[in-house]
Design a protein around this nucleic acid. Structure first.
Lengths: 335, 335
DNA sequence: CTGTTAGCGCTTTCAG
DNA sequence: CTGAAAGCGCTAACAG
């Protein structure tokens, strides 16, 4: 009980050698005899020796811990990304510290303080719906902690980014609808401070122009991604005289909220009004009546790429200066 | 750039006092003058001083980090529980390390090794669907790391547990169906090594006995919770000559898998065959046709209770011996 | 090939 | 009221 973990000292004493010999043996130092090495390793194994991370941090200034900061774990997009991040980082012997901002800027700041306190080696982040400035992230970089953003990346800021070709995805979604003969298309977008909202809007507008359909201002709504605001947006669209025949939504959750608002209003989703969304989450496969198409964002791939980019930053610090931007192609999936 | 975090030494030098004075001032040691304290605290604040956790661990043998090990982040039940755990632990200045076993025993063991390596102060766990022995958890206790299990708790093992009154919940669900005039009820259960499966079965059998309905062996299926096995179970039930009129499922996900299997087979869920499940996850609110009732398990409450119990263990080590068992009442929610 | 020593940042006796 | 010094576990420069 309360048997504390084995230390180098304990091994050294039992073997009647010095602590440094043990340390070197375990690190496969070239100038240690094979015989000593095997004796040491054997005993270490037997004692279940695991190096004390605190001592390592103290010496090397490295915790082998990566922070991941994202809005909501419960959103499948993010939990898929997390799994990919884990799978990429764990083989490299990194631990992963996960935190949720829950789309609150204040929480996001708190979590970053906590990451600094625990001395993470790097951070992978997707910003909250409220985030409109990035000073708290800059603080990390001042401490030499590299940050890689994914999906919800900051707007107009030089930083490492892994993001989707959202504009193009939005255009494809629009083309799909136009080809179906739909000309009145609404947009329920995310908050304007997110670059990904801007890109959806751009895709929407470019497509409208290109296909010569009417992108009337009142067809464009933006909410904070909550159920409440989304239902509100949908109600406003439904109340219009020239009600849209289809709606493009920020993501699958927003689509689900909007569709449930329709049902409450006696409007049949995908019959009276078509839905196309972003993300294409597995969750939608449970629905009898999912959005008719979805712009796949490849959450796992994004997570893996973000983790790989961070690993690269961690390996050669010089690369801190030229920020990388990785763009994952989206793909329109028709259900 | 690469500005390393402030240390006690840096503060001491600037203030021309000793390191120990700074340490004591920050810890509100009674024998330090108010004046010194305020000078120190002011500078510490200005320099954004945050104690180096490594040094603390080395001295106090405490990382202020709690591990959380559970099957899948993407299951809403667990992500709800996590949020509650975070909310309970973070005000107490604990960090939360999350890992997923993905229902694999091997991964579960690996993750526990990793928790030991990072010297977590305690662990909150919900075991994998494959877990049939608990040696890897016992290893933690040998290091003096307390473990609290929640929801999926070990069977026949003395340990701290936070679980639901599952047997009773299953009985209520059965009563609900019987009152609807249903007498042929199937059960798609989880793997037998989980205590929670045993309890569901007990509830099912007790209810069958009590209400005088036929609990025929071939109405009882158990799978490993994956989509594949669940669909298999459902197919078997559908293939029976005296096909059940209703099915009780291990949880909402299993219900969704089973319902989609029904649709594939041309059977209309909740019309041709009724579904009642466990968990009552928010996700089901998106469905046009969710299970007609669900045994609410109060994920958040379970998470919070587990975290509180762990905090208690961490505070007084003596309590290691008498294991606590906390039971959260379930509640049948009719949709 | 191996031992000695210093030091990472912090707390905590022991001495003033 | 404050300082000096030891030590937590480990690595690495310096000496043999």
């Amino acid at each position: 009980m309360q048997k504390s973990p084995a230390t180098l000292k304990a091994i050294a004493e039992q073997l009647r050698v010095s602590v440094s010999t043990v340390s070197r043996a375990l690190n496969d130092h070239p100038r240690i005899s094979e015989k000593t090495k095997s004796r040491v390793k054997e005993l270490a194994e037997k004692l279940h020796y695991v190096p004390n991370p605190a001592a390592l941090l103290l010496k090397k200034n490295k915790t082998y811990t990566i922070g991941v900061l994202l809005p909501f774990l419960k959103e499948e997009f993010f939990s898929l990304a997390i799994s990919a991040i884990e799978d990429t980082l764990m083989p490299e012997d990194y631990h992963v510290l996960i935190s949720q901002s829950r789309d609150s800027l204040e929480r996001e700041k708190k979590m970053i303080e906590s990451f600094i306190a625990s001395r993470v080696d790097g951070l992978i982040a997707s910003v909250s719906a409220e985030t409109n400035h990035y000073g708290h992230f800059k603080a990390l970089e001042e401490y030499g902690i590299p940050v890689v953003f994914f999906d919800r990346v900051p707007r107009n800021i030089k930083c490492h980014k892994v993001r989707n070709s959202v504009t193009q995805g939005a255009k494809e979604a629009m083309r799909f609808l136009v080809n179906k003969g739909v000309t009145k298309i609404g947009l329920i977008n995310g908050p304007g401070n997110l670059e990904v909202s801007g890109e959806r809007l751009n895709g929407y507008l470019e497509a409208a122009m290109e296909f010569g359909i009417d992108a009337r201002q009142h067809y464009i709504k933006s909410g904070n991604l909550t159920r409440e605001e989304t239902e509100q947006c949908m109600m406003e669209l439904l109340a219009l005289e020239d009600r849209p025949q289809a709606v493009l939504t920020f993501n699958d959750y927003v689509a689900l909220y909007a569709m449930s608002a329709c049902r409450k209003a006696g409007v049949e989703p995908n019959k009276d009004i078509l839905f196309v969304s972003f993300a294409n989450l597995p969750i939608t496969s449970f629905l009898e009546n999912p959005p008719i198409a979805s712009v796949e964002q490849f959450a796992s791939k994004m997570g893996a790429q973000a983790a790989n980019l961070l690993l690269k930053c961690l390996q050669n610090q010089e690369s801190e200066l030229d920020y990388q931007e990785i763009i994952i192609k989206t793909e329109l999936i028709i259900h």
